[in-house]
Simulated assay, not measured.
Amino acid sequence: MSVTTLSRASGISSVDIKELLKLIPMLSEGIPLYYEQDGNGGMKVYVGEDVLLPLLKAVKPLFEDEEFVNGLLEMLEAQAGDMASLVKALKPVLKSLPKVIDGTTEVKFGIMFTALQPSAETNILK
């Protein structure tokens, strides 16, 4: 299945465009990020469920569409190089996403920063 065919998969027509349109202002205004600091100088920076849940719920129909899932897997496999054989293992994961999304009430996507610890081997903090 080509990318063109993938874009015509029936799941595309059931994507909640209204929910996606609500996220459009973030393209120019920025994506709201949250942060938490721990007592050791570390920090977590993440996108919260206020952004992620509407996005996930809007694209959920894509993963209910067999044609879309197969096309996505083909595309991933073509780009995976030496790891292409592992792509097939993603199919059950992708097929289960609608149920996972329906049951999700809290989701965060982010990065954790850890404070650099001084070391006798480095002069970075001296």
Rank of each mutant, 00 (worst) to 15 (best):
M1F: 10
M1N: 13
T4N: 10
T5E: 15
S7Y: 09
S13Y: 03
S13L: 07
S14N: 12
I17A: 14
K22F: 04
L23P: 04
I24L: 10
S28E: 14
E29M: 07
G30I: 06
I31D: 03
P32R: 05
P32M: 09
L33A: 04
Y34R: 11
Y35Q: 11
Y35C: 08
Q37N: 14
V47C: 02
G48N: 01
E49H: 10
D50P: 00
L52K: 02
L53G: 01
L56H: 02
V59E: 00
P61H: 05
F63E: 01
E64S: 15
E67F: 03
V69F: 09
L72Q: 00
L73E: 01
M75P: 00
G81V: 04
A84Q: 13
V87S: 01
V87W: 00
V87D: 00
K88E: 09
L90N: 04
K91W: 03
K95I: 14
S96F: 08
S96L: 11
P98H: 14
K99T: 13
V100G: 13
V100T: 15
V100C: 09
I101S: 08
D102P: 06
G103M: 08
T104A: 11
V107T: 11
K108I: 11
F109W: 12
I111Y: 10
T114Q: 10
Q117I: 10
Q117L: 10
E121D: 14
L125V: 06
L125D: 06
